[in-house]
């Protein structure tokens, strides 16, 4: 059986940039996995990460999130719907220690089919000690051919932030 977990592309930020795009995503895989390790230049705490699929920022994204707060036993949950972009995770901001980067892994299932909407899962360690779990959906039947990643607060991705996109094929 062939290996079916393939690196499609990867970016490492060398000078701060406001967005990262994966274009011309091949339609020959079953699932996509986006792995990020990064921080933004926001002056405060964390930045929400938002992804535009196929350049689509209309209000057809939804998600439910569950989080544990840093350094406490508290946990919180909430949701967004009719949202103009795919909210996945929190990324460490510029107020964190210099070497502190968040990580998150986002799975988008059956991204190339044109029959169903596109659900996704994201597991995220924002970098401040909390954890973050998201289940969401791109409520569109369009196949996903591109993704543009930005921060909701419009700050830049800092140097050494990395984004890697993988494709998985079901036999």
């Amino acid at each position: 059986m062939p290996n079916t977990y393939v690196a499609l592309n990867s970016f490492t930020v060398t000078t701060p940039v406001s967005s990262i795009s994966f274009n011309s995503i091949p339609q020959t895989y079953t699932d996509l996995v986006l792995v990020a390790q990064g921080r933004t230049t926001t002056a405060g705490g964390n930045s929400d990460i938002i992804i535009g699929l196929n350049g689509d920022y209309s209000g057809i994204y939804s998600r439910l999130w569950t989080s544990t707060a840093s350094g406490s036993n508290s946990h919180v949950t909430g949701y967004n719907f009719n949202f103009g972009g795919m909210l996945t995770s929190y990324m460490t901001g510029g107020g964190a220690a210099a070497n502190q980067f968040s990580n998150d892994v986002t799975h988008i299932m059956n991204y190339a089919n044109t029959t169903t909407f596109k659900p996704y899962i994201c597991k995220n360690l924002p970098g401040n000690g909390g954890t973050f779990f998201t289940v969401g959906q791109y409520n569109s039947r369009n196949a996903i051919s591109s993704m543009t990643i930005t921060s909701l607060d419009s700050t830049n991705f800092a140097t050494n932030t990395t984004f890697s996109l993988y494709g998985i094929t079901a036999a």
């Binding site: 209000g59 057809i60 994204y61 939804s62 998600r63 439910l64 569950t66 949701y79 719907f81 009719n82 659900p119 899962i121 597991k123 779990f133 998201t134 289940v135 969401g136 959906q137 409520n139």
Partner: peptide
């Protein structure tokens, strides 16, 4: 990790 999301307030994870 699992759940269901849709473009209304009703979801579960």
């Amino acid at each position: 990790q699992c759940g269901a999301s849709q473009n209304t307030a009703t979801m579960q994870s």
